[in-house]
Amino acid sequence: MAKLLNLQEWANSIYSTPPSLSTLRRWVREGRIYPAPELHGKEYKLMPDSIYVDPSKKNLRLKPKHRKLPATGTLLERLRHDEKASTLRR
């Protein structure tokens, strides 16, 4: 298991000019550091390989490569071809 670092040690290892401790604490509260640091007493401890995640970036989620179409066709295809939809069970 890797040795846990506090916020200041982590920032010194990642950034040439690290942000202030208050900024680092705000990032933790806002969930901008992954994996999330743990509070040990009065200070946060995190893994050395933790990264900063910018929440304003849209491509954080993995996109599926290919979605399989339903066997009966999509709703738009059924409407175009005037096919009846199967009845709903209640």
Rank of each mutant, 00 (worst) to 15 (best):
N6A: 02
L79T: 09
L69S: 02
M47R: 06
T72H: 06
A71G: 00
E9Y: 04
S56Y: 13
R26A: 14
L88T: 04
K45H: 05
K45A: 07
M47Q: 06
S16E: 14
L21C: 02
Y34C: 11
E43R: 05
L4G: 04
L5K: 05
P18S: 13
G31L: 07
P19Y: 14
R26Y: 08
P64S: 11
L88I: 09
Y15E: 04
P64V: 01
Q8S: 10
L4S: 06
A11L: 03
T87N: 13
T17I: 14
V53A: 13
E38W: 02
R78V: 00
S16H: 04
R67F: 13
Y44I: 03
K45R: 10
T87M: 14
T74H: 03
E9A: 11
R61M: 03
L76Y: 12
E43D: 05
W10Q: 01
P18G: 14
K68S: 14
S22P: 11
L39F: 05
S56A: 15
P37E: 06
K65P: 00
D54G: 10
L39D: 01
R26F: 08
G41N: 02
P37N: 05
R26D: 07
R67K: 15
S50M: 11
S13F: 04
I33H: 00
T23Y: 09
T17C: 07
L60D: 04
K63R: 12
L39V: 12
D54K: 11
E83L: 11
S16C: 06
R61I: 04
Y34I: 13
H40F: 07
R90N: 05
S56K: 14
R61D: 02
E83N: 08
K63I: 08
